[in-house]
């Protein structure tokens, strides 16, 4: 759905998206990376289970909620990618195992 207009100026980092390694430009948001990796949806809503992709990219809409480094319900547009980060789709409401 999205592509870059040039080679990344500040290098690339490898992140694990849904268990698959992807090289993405450094310093972009996780939401941008998810779009670049071609994910069909970043989450399934807790209400109807419908798939969603990032919508506003500026922290307002909360449609880009993902599980980042094991932490559920993170706004992917507000988090910058880092080497070896694990990024997973948020399926429904968050589950906290140690509660």
């Amino acid at each position: 759905m999205f592509k870059t207009i040039e080679e990344p100026a500040e290098g690339a980092v490898e992140i694990l998206v849904e268990g698959v390694a992807h090289r993405v430009p450094a310093n972009i948001s996780v939401a941008a990376a998810a779009l670049l990796c071609g994910l069909g949806s970043v989450r399934e809503t807790p209400v109807s289970g419908a798939g969603r992709l990032p919508y506003c990219m500026m922290g307002v809409c909360f449609d880009c909620l993902m599980k980042i480094n094991g932490q559920p319900n993170q706004r992917a547009c507000q988090v910058t990618v880092a080497a070896d980060m694990t990024v997973e789709r948020q399926l429904g409401a968050a589950e906290y195992e140690d509660l």
Binding site: F2, P8, A32, Y55
Partner: peptide, 15 residues
């Protein structure tokens, strides 16, 4: 706005 943010912050455009 999201499209423009992707352009500014990640050099990304729709495909």
């Amino acid at each position: 706005g999201a499209g423009q943010i992707l352009l500014k912050s990640a050099g990304m455009v729709p495909n």
